[in-house]
Amino acid sequence: MLPEAEYGVFAMKNDEFYVMSERAARNFSFQELTVEYGKYPSLAKVTGQDLIGKALSAPLSHYEKVYALPMTTISMEKGTGIVTSVPSDSPDDWAALRDLQTKAGLREKYNVEEAWCVPFAPVPIINIPEFGDLTAVKLVEDLKIASQKDTALLKQAKDKAYLKGFYEGKLLVGIAKGETVEKSKPIVKQHLFDEKMAVPYYEPEGKVVSRTGDNCIVASCYQWFMRYGEEEWKEFVRSHLKSDDFKAYNTKTQHEFEIIIDWLKEWGCTRTQGLGTLLPWDDKFKVESLSDSTIYMAYYTVAGLL
């Protein structure tokens, strides 16, 4: 928890109550999770400090009971404002836990008892050949990271751990034991959803502001899509990129094309408000307009023939 942050309590469809930032609840409400779509009234307010020291049951955790602890580096602009702590594999989590375990002054500041943090040693869950069974502990030591405030070094440690771990790391425990991190991720995710221990949650991967000045969210929407991401079609374009018929003139541009083709997926092509041509087979929708930069590209491909 971020001690000074304010969290809300929000009622979900399934008679459960979720504690999170209001910003996250706004996203939740448009993803068919709250009692009423698009509504996110907070039933109570609670600060991070109020929750510190409260006993928790964390899904799949090695420890039957854990305690809510303070973490000063949490951003309220990302996620729910609450984070899990995986000190074995997240350098940030290990640095924050170690600060609490070893610094009496810090514990005092946030009213943290030793019993809530000292007995919780990092648990080996993933082996990465280069780093061993406790990657975060090793990297924090190797890079001589002194505290959770060493953000630049921690970022470096996190990137190292994840880059190596994703393909080479293997799970030592659980339902995907023996699998690589890459393969186990979707397996454990589905397991968490199936067991109702977690819900899928989406938010914009970066800040999005509409031209009307609204901070955008992610909503589950029903509308018409074009299959831009079809693998067969992508492969066709990729082979064209590699052929002699295509010249990018420099490798960076060539690479950009490859990235964009990988990134393309189904593409929404309708809207419900504003001006536009009605969709011929469903007049609740209008055809989404194209931006000028899209039209230039389309025009240049045929300009030579006109």
Partner: peptide, 11 residues
Amino acid sequence: VFYGKKYTIYS
């Protein structure tokens, strides 16, 4: 072209 549910950036 298909009709479906998708998580979309929304205002």
